[in-house]
Nucleic acid binder design. Sequence first.
RNA 1: UGCCCGAUAGUAUAAUGGUAGUACGACUGUUUUUGGUGCAGUUUGUCUUGGUUCGAAUCCAGGUCGGGCAACCA
Length: 556
Amino acid sequence: MIEERALNFLEEIIEEDISNGKNNGRVQTRFPPEPNGYLHIGHAKSICLNFGIAQKYNGKTNLRFDDTNPSTEETEYVDSIREDIHWLGFEWDKELYSSDYFDQLYDFAVTLIKNGLAYVDDSTAEEIAAAKGTPTEPGTPTPYRDRSIDENLHLFSDMKDGKYPDGAKVLRAKIDLESPNMHLRDPLMYRIKHAHHHRTGNKWCVYPMYDFAHGQSDAIEEITHSICTLEFIPHRPLYEWFINKLNVFPSKQYEFARLNMNFTVMSKRKLLQLVNEKYVSGWDDPRMPTISGLRRRGYTPLSIRNFCERIGVAKRENLIDLSLLEFCIREDLNKTALRRMVVMDPVKLVITNYPQGQSEIMHGENNPEAENGGGSREIPFSSEIWIEREDFMEDAPKKFFRLGPGLMVRLKNAYIVKCENFIKDENGRISEIHCTYIPESKSGSDTSGIHVKGTIHWVSVQHAKTAEIRLYDRLFQVEDPSNEDGDFKEYINPDSLSVIKNAFIEPDLVHARPVLGYQFIRKGYFTMDIDSTPDNLVFNRTVTLKDAWAKEVKKS
RNA sequence: UGCCCGAUAGUAUAAUGGUAGUACGACUGUUUUUGGUGCAGUUUGUCUUGGUUCGAAUCCAGGUCGGGCAACCA
């Protein structure tokens, strides 16, 4: 966990409320997703905020599905949302649905009608929009605004009873058509939708709008602090108007700036497009900023919670650097990931003075950050090994601390070798590197007195197994795809996924398990993908290691 | 050209009238059997113009810039 930090503005408000004895010091929050898509890292911010605040101030958090629009909502999404919140490490108090309150909301609407504060409007959507005016011009009443209470009561009842087709009528609050706040210009409360609802089935054909459901749901649950994102600020007066006119529990709404991250998109609508149009394999594609995508990519719940802590909470728009998220996962995985050796772009290295056909067992620490190295695993060594092609250069520059003619390196967990020769194929490509090894330089019992600058990873040819490795990069080529000209999908990074079919892996990795994080030494952090089978192991790259050499190369 | 919200290093976020700090990034150096990790250090900031005050990032006024608001979406 992160050490103590200054309170964010919401915590300041809450501490003040508590010290003023507001709600008897009770703190109740809620996380209110609409089940019309998968949760993403932006939701994680909201989850950590709502659940975190409740934990911190001895309160509780409800999970409430905001399911007032039957045409977009599905139980698949409900299930994924529940799973993701649990995986992040949070437990909700009550699991609730806005649809639980449909009867009560209907009664609220009737109450408002009876008080002359709501009316049934037969106008079309276009007519209503036109009569609302514009931000700079006041709205005008439609011909139905002054219907009698009795008529409104009957019409609304008939709406509920299915006597009208979709769109024929709506129920509107009677507030102020000239308000500078557009949300107060007689907002819609109910619309007719003859649609099947994932929970209430065909019971209803009228459904409340968000604005008539959200605040009252908060009130019913006696939510003390209703935390939402900035775009709902102009809704707050309406939120309070309903609470006031209905004389229900006075929940208070507070708004913070949603998370934006560079090189990705964060709207459910856009993410759904990527899924539907097959730019990615699904909501849980490891390139997606969804919780399920990050999970499959190898991110840990702790890393995401730490990230949400570090980005802070405020009211100004922000665009968070992807590098902070990457820092958080490296920080966590560095402490826990098992170190293994994998060669992805192999070239053969032959040790000419090591007896052919002979092999020996080396030992490698599981994790140098852990106590006692986290234990060790066995690594077979022999006279022919695979190394990375990029670890050899025919004309090595001065600062290249790897292999080249006459150069020496340490083979990780094994011997120091010296390059004596190399062979090229007919295309001029290096096909084999010939080295001699120094028998006294064995790891752990090195008496050679030789110090080399570089250490490289390797896998014994004779003992190597293979695996499929999926390398991921940022999904978009530009920092803020939504803010570019044209369709955001034009900016998808064509190299966001590259697959290596037959990487050579050290034998111990056949025991790899999903969920665990691995560090393929010098290559990055990896995790086993759900597509993996014993016959075809598949690993996803979670994130690369920081690479000072790559920077050096880039500079020149 | 209405109403609302906001503006502190490259990116975020503190300082709540009294020394502008922290994290990430970038850059140095150091350690290292991962060019990883660790450690040490450097760099860069209060949108603007006035005002109040002994003192302003903070309070006030004007301006500038950014964002939001006119879905039978949430």
